[in-house]
Design a protein around this nucleic acid. Structure first.
Lengths: 202, 202
DNA sequence: GTATAAGACATACGCTGCGTATGTTACCGA
DNA sequence: TCGGTAACATACGCAGCGTATGTCTTATAC
């Protein structure tokens, strides 16, 4: 059976995907400012014209890369979270999966280090509200609703939890390969303890 | 008595200071990328030549602004912390003073939002290790030494505390003037609770 | 007191890299 | 088979950084 797409459309999508992949590599290794569209295009044996045909701007190209990475990260975290029995366990499972994702150099560099720079804090927050932050806020809300965590301002708790994940992500993306496991354990431990500070005391 | 400086040196320092002030305003309102050296110089009725005479690069100019702000912030935090009786109270006093500083739009925007962009994460961390992060780590260490906080990895705890202050700083620098007080209270509360999660349980 | 050196800028230039405007070619539909 | 349009390539303009060079004024040496 046919894909329903014409030959030309298939080729077009292929170059778009290749562009995205090349851009991901460049952004992850050289950062946003350090990669020129000229080079990205050259990686594909194309010119900047191709880039501007598929993406309206350099920022837009970056956002496409970003969204791709975030979508996958959220998916994995959700999948892990679903295996938990209660809200607390679900949150911890999701946290663990997320830390694993952050240990990936590409994700860590692009999402946590370059993204705010590339698209500005405002836009970054807008997108994160749909992705990572949104997920966290749901976990926090579930924890509050189930009575496991005190009724403190959900937004504030979520922001702080979010920032800690960011710190963990940064540390993980910078850590040497051999240290990643240890660093991850340390962050998981301390974050777990800090979150425990929010639980209701009997 | 004379300052020991020649007339010319005084004028030179005056323009340098004026440049720094103009740059601070521009960076705080328009960001690093949004301010051109042309405009900064024009604010002083000078040209870019003056800027490049006093500072080797745009980044260097930004770093000068940054260091000025950070030095003052650290000073205020230390001053507040010194008024505490025990390590825990000292940490909370310092935290409070720091949140107040973060509520300042200039400090918040330049240090927390623009700085990582302007000088890159690596350089930003290098400098923060000397300023804010260094202060935090000392507080954490004091808390551990005094037995108030568990012997978890100090570096990790400090990084996480640091990231929370960052989040608070961001939130404060973005909050509307009327909300700043409420936002600050919320963050102080939740951060306090999270840190409490690290205390030794009897 | 004058000459010379040096400091404090101004002016001029080149370069990179983004965005846009304008081709050019190949495919698809009628 | 013949426009039309999608998918690029080429060419251009422009902002803004950094640098090289020029100019004027103040300090210093004699």
């Amino acid at each position: 059976m046919s894909t329903g797409k014409s030959r030309r459309d298939q080729f077009s999508e292929a170059t778009r995907a290749a562009l995205l992949e090349a851009a991901t590599r460049r952004f992850a290794t050289l950062g946003f400012g350090g990669t020129s569209l000229e080079d990205v295009a050259a990686d594909i044996q194309a010119t900047r014209g191709a880039v501007y045909h598929h993406f309206p701007s350099k920022k837009a190209l970056f956002e496409a890369v970003f969204e791709e990475l975030e979508t996958e990260a959220v998916r994995q975290s959700a999948e892990a979270g679903d295996r938990g029995e209660d809200p607390w366990q679900r949150a911890l499972f999701a946290l663990d999966a997320f830390l694993t994702t952050c240990a990936d150099p590409v994700y860590g560099r692009v999402v946590w280090q370059e993204a705010p720079i590339a698209m500005g804090w405002v836009r970054w927050e807008e997108l994160e509200n749909k992705f990572a932050f949104g997920v966290i806020e749901e976990h926090v809300r579930a924890l509050v609703e189930s009575g496991l965590v005190e009724r403190l301002p959900v937004e504030t708790m979520s922001r702080l939890a979010f920032s800690m994940l960011g710190a963990a992500g940064q540390a993980l993306s910078r850590a040497a390969e051999a240290d990643k496991a240890r660093v991850k354990d340390e962050y998981r431990l301390v974050i777990g303890r800090m979150l425990a500070g929010l639980t209701v005391r009997k």
